[in-house]
């Protein structure tokens, strides 16, 4: 369980303070995967660093299992974190990196071999981490987060740099960890990735929480759906549907009907003898919903006006 209360972080800058995290409140519950979603510069990493006691909040607080991170008697056995794949000395082997981490928190060294096997790095465990690909570095970071077998796991952009197989693996791992009753908190700037991984969604933009709801709720609220109709006599169809008080609009050679599912629309029009060429339920993608929600809060825009959501998270 992670709980933030009025959590605020301001960074001093040349033109006054920049507010990275603006008084946010949230709770990350155990037993489910909570996705922490937001465009670059939204405050995700800053929030995660504050959870881990690396950055001090300007005001407000964040606790893990009811206390500050630094107050944990053995933090790695309580919360495991992947911060970014580069928080590793390039000259040290993967196994040695895990060994010092284990030593620091009194974790049995047998865990080192176990997590190396779990993330699939046992064959390269003796190699210097500097030779690792970004994906291997991510796997090592995930291994480090699992080392203390912690009940709370925080992963900052874990799928960055992973190949499709690796992405599927992270997804499966997150699911397993949540099913075991752990608190799983995963950040991403990719809605499509979160849609496949998260049970619960925390959307952040410009340091504020824009949405805090279940994935299903988010889809229902933000991914608007309509029924698309193509018919030789569009005007007739429009008359019938409008007469039933439905929200109908014509876009090019199709009608868009809101407020009723495809079956209902089909039955209404069939009863009125309107011939249909197409009847489709169209659901706006979650990516679109996310873009819409965060459009005002995206830090950097491309010149086309489209939000820039790709690239590094920092």
């Amino acid at each position: 369980m992670i709980r933030a209360h009025a959590l605020t972080k301001r960074f001093p800058g040349p033109d006054g303070d920049r507010v990275a995290v603006d008084g946010i409140d949230f709770v990350v519950e155990p037993g489910r995967v909570t996705g922490f979603l937001g465009p670059n510069g939204a405050g995700k990493s800053t929030t995660m660093r504050m959870i881990l006691g690396l950055d001090a909040p300007t005001s407000g607080s964040v606790t893990v299992n009811g206390h500050r991170y630094a107050a944990s008697p053995a933090p790695l056995r309580e919360i495991g974190a992947l911060l970014d794949a580069h928080a590793i000395h390039p000259g040290r082997s993967a196994r040695d990196h895990l060994r010092w981490l284990a030593a620091s928190n009194g974790i049995p060294t047998t865990r080192v071999g176990e997590v190396l096997e779990q993330v699939g790095l046992e064959s390269v465990a003796g190699q210097r981490a500097g030779r690792f690909s970004l994906g291997m570095g991510q796997r090592l970071g995930i291994a480090a987060s699992l080392l203390g077998d912690p009940p709370v796991i925080v992963l900052d952009e874990p799928v960055n740099g992973l190949d499709p197989e690796g992405i599927r693996w992270v997804r499966k791992l997150a699911r397993e960890l949540a099913d075991e009753g752990r608190t799983v908190f995963i950040s991403s700037h990719l809605m499509s990735e979160m849609a496949l991984m998260a049970d619960h969604l925390l959307v952040i933009g410009r340091g504020s929480i824009l949405a805090d709801c279940s994935m299903q709720q988010f889809m229902a609220d933000h991914a608007a759906s309509y029924v698309r109709i193509k018919a030789p006599a569009l005007a007739d169809a429009q008359t019938v549907l409008s007469g039933r008080g439905l929200d109908v609009s014509q876009v090019d050679a199709e009608l868009r009907v809101g407020g009723l599912d495809a079956a209902g629309v089909g039955e209404l029009l069939g009863a009125s003898g309107v011939v249909l060429h197409e009847l489709t339920l169209v659901r706006a993608s979650l990516e679109d919903a996310f873009m819409t929600l965060t459009a005002d809060s995206v830090e950097y825009h491309a010149h086309s006006g489209a939000p820039v959501l790709e690239g590094a998270s920092r």
Partner: peptide, 18 residues
């Protein structure tokens, strides 16, 4: 690629006290 679950590896439930 091994994807053994944590509980299978460690044989102990999570969310225990420290």
């Amino acid at each position: 690629m091994s994807t053994t679950t944590l509980s299978a590896v460690t044989g102990q439930p999570p969310a225990r006290d420290l």
